[in-house]
Structure formats: structure tokens, C-alpha cells
Computed example of a mutant assay.
Amino acid sequence: MSVVGTRDFILGFEPELLVVQIAALMPVKTLRPTLKASHMYTQISQSIREIGLVEPPVIARDPATPGRYLLLDGHLRIEVLKDQGRIDVECLVSTDDEAMTYNRSVNRISPVMQRAMILRALERGVPEAKIAAAMSLEAASVKRRVKMLDGICAEAISQLNDRHCPLAVFDILRKMKPLRQMAAAELMIQHNNFSVAYASAILTGTPVADLVGGTKPTPKNVTPAAMARLERELDNLQSAVGEVQESFSRDNLHLTVAKGYLKKLLANRSVYQFLTDNYPEILEQFQTIADVTSTLPSNAAA
């Protein structure tokens, strides 16, 4: 039986990894001189020294010079290997020589996921000292990551599972009861703000009944009257956010429909020319709506 409608496809990478001489790699970008002093460089260097190269660099064959390769991704890793005295490296060979950073399409691991990886490594017998060295952390920091979710309810953990929250945020959430933890996590997600300052503000506006210790935290140099005003403003803000959420889905649907209609309308040459000649201001507004790519704020859409 023959298959109808099948199409040939081209592999994006060669099926086998290739060991090449580092001297044969031609970087497609120049690293900043200060990069070697960065925390990222130190962390990668420590990781490679302790557990080896986890993610192979991506290269492409240079059609003009056999035996030479374009280094598409992994410039920092290659610099680390050079500094460690390595002369060759195992690479992933791309069939396309487009110079892009593949890591831009990768979601960086969140603290909650990082903790899960640490726990799994500990369960397999990897010493804490080796984990700390591979992650370029102090041993005490590894212990803190292991205990970071103690006292945090499962629902809040699920909400923040893929969010990049500082460890101190979980210390703040731990002071709240489970329902308040969930509400605080929801507020941080709504505002795309996972900073310690914002979490502290939520804690400050938390009623005593929702605190684990039953003691209201009092910021320095804040009068009782100012604290009461802050609590009222936070309650008003939460109510306003709730009202916006209720109307967002409806408004987003209306905008999507309008965008599609206007895009088709402006694709009509006669209509476009008529608006250009008679109503340029309206055409400009129509064009703005038709060109909308996201209804999210610019920082959230990124």
C-alpha cells in the first residue's frame, strides 16, 4: 500500500555527535572581555570541571574550507574548555549554518525544578559537596534549596513550579497560612512580579488571621495609620485586578475578532486606497489594530 501525501523532510542535525579540534572552530560572534569575570562563566566552568560537558556546542561544516567548522552556539563553553586545557570537544553538527542562539528557545530551570534535580541527585548518592561544586554554590546554599519548600502548601508549589522566584520569596510565603500562600502566589503571577519586595508587601497586607505565627509583621519606620492605609490600598488593588480579569477574556475575544476582520478588509486594494485618499486617520487606527501581535504587556509577551 502506498502512502499518499507524504513529504520528504530534512534533518536539522547530523545523527551522530562529532569530535573536533577546538582550533578548527570558527566563532561567529565575539565574547565580551568582561564575560570571564561573570557568575555564568564561573558556574559553567565549575559544572564542566565536576560533571563534564552536559550540552554539546552546535557547529556547522564550513563549505569553503573542509575540516573547519562554524561555531553557532556554545562560545562560552568553548572558552571554558580552552582555559581548562582541552584540545577537542564533542559537538552537535547542524545542517544549517544559520548563526542563532538555540538557548533562547529554552526555558531556564526554575528554583522549584532545580530543587527537584538536587533531591534526585542526593537520592542517587551524589554528595552535597559535589552538587555545590557543579552548581558553583556554597554547601549551605544547597541545603537551603533542599528545604526551601518546607511549610509551603502543594497548591502554591504547583503555581510557582515554573516561575523564577528568589529563595527569599519562599521564606516569606512560609509565614502565611496555605490559603494565603495560594492567594499571594496568584497575585505575583497576575502582576508578573516575583520580587522579594513585592512578596514582602503582600505579607505586610496579610490579615493576622492568615499568618502562621499570628503576629503581624511591622516594617521599620511605618506608623499604624500608614499600615492601615497600606492594607486598604492592597485590598482595593486586589478587587480592581479581579474586575479586570473578569472582563479581559471578553475584551480579548472582541479584539481578536476585530483584528481578523480589519486585516481582511485592509487586504482589499480598493478599500485600502479609498481609506488612504479619504480617511487616512481612520486607516492608521485600523492598521494599528490589524498589526497587534499580542494582548499581553511587552514584558509578559517576551
Results as ranks from 00 to 15, higher is better:
Lys264Met: 09
Val244Ser: 14
Leu262Asn: 01
Leu265Asp: 00
Ala267Gln: 14
Gln273Trp: 00
Lys264Cys: 04
Ser249Met: 05
His254Tyr: 07
Tyr261Lys: 01
Ala258Met: 13
Lys259Gly: 00
Leu237Ser: 03
Glu281Met: 12
Lys259Thr: 03
Asp251Ile: 03
Gly260Tyr: 01
Phe286Glu: 00
Asn268Tyr: 10
Gly242Glu: 06
Leu266Asn: 05
Phe286His: 04
Tyr279Lys: 07
Leu255Ala: 13
Asp251Gln: 08
Glu246Arg: 01
Pro280Val: 00
Val257Cys: 02
Gln273Pro: 00
Pro280Cys: 02
Leu253Asp: 10
Asp277Ala: 15
Glu281Asp: 15
Asp251Tyr: 06
Leu255Met: 14
Gly260Pro: 00
Ser270Tyr: 09
Ala240Asn: 11
Leu275Met: 15
Leu283Gln: 11
Leu253Thr: 08
Ser239Trp: 02
Glu281Val: 15
Gly260Met: 02
Asp251Trp: 04
His254Thr: 09
Thr256Lys: 13
Val271Pro: 02
Leu266Trp: 06
Ser239Ala: 14
Gln245Arg: 14
Glu284Gln: 14
Phe248Ile: 02
Asn278Ile: 04
Asp251Gly: 01
Gln285Tyr: 06
Ala240Tyr: 03
Thr276Val: 09
Thr276Lys: 14
Thr256Asn: 06
Phe274Cys: 08
Arg269Phe: 05
Ser239Leu: 12
Tyr279Asp: 09
Ser270Met: 10
Asp277Ile: 03
Lys263Gly: 07
Phe286Asp: 00
Gln245Ile: 07
Arg269Asp: 15
Ala267Asp: 09
Gly242Thr: 05
Thr256His: 05
Arg250Ile: 12
Leu275Val: 07
Phe286Ala: 04
Ser270Lys: 12
Val271Ser: 03
Val241Arg: 08
Phe274Asp: 14
Pro280Trp: 02
Ala258Ile: 06
Ala240Met: 11
Lys263Arg: 15
Tyr261Ile: 08
Val244His: 07
Leu283His: 07
Ser239Glu: 13
His254Lys: 13
Ala240Glu: 14
Asp277Lys: 15
Val271Lys: 03
Leu237Lys: 05
Ser239Asp: 15
Ala240Trp: 01
Thr276Asp: 09
Leu266Phe: 04
Asn278Trp: 02
Phe248Ser: 12
Pro280Glu: 08
Ser270Thr: 14
Phe248Gly: 01
Leu253Glu: 11
Pro280Ile: 00
Asn278Phe: 08
Leu237Asn: 02
Gln285Ile: 10
Ser270Leu: 11
Leu262Ile: 12
Arg250Cys: 08
Leu262Ala: 03
Gln285Ser: 08
Asn252Pro: 00
Gln245Cys: 09
Ala258Gly: 01
Glu281Asn: 14
Gly242Pro: 01
Thr256Asp: 05
Val244Arg: 09
Asp277Phe: 03
Ala267Glu: 12
Val257Leu: 12
Arg269Pro: 04
Ser247Arg: 11
Pro280Ala: 04
Val271Arg: 03
Asp277Leu: 13
Gln245Tyr: 02
Lys259Leu: 06
Asn278Val: 10
Gln285His: 09
Leu266Arg: 04
Gly260Val: 01
Asn252Leu: 10
Asn278Gln: 11
Ala258Trp: 08
Asn268Thr: 05
Asn268Phe: 06
Ser270Trp: 08
Thr256Met: 10
Ser249Lys: 08
Ser247Cys: 07
Val241Asp: 09
Glu284Ser: 15
Ala240Ile: 08
Tyr279Cys: 05
Glu281Gly: 05
Glu246Asp: 07
Leu262Tyr: 02
Thr276Leu: 14
Asn268Leu: 09
Gln245Gly: 12
Gln238His: 03
Leu237Met: 05
Arg269Ile: 03
Gln245Ser: 13
Ser249Ala: 12
Glu246Val: 15
Val244Lys: 04
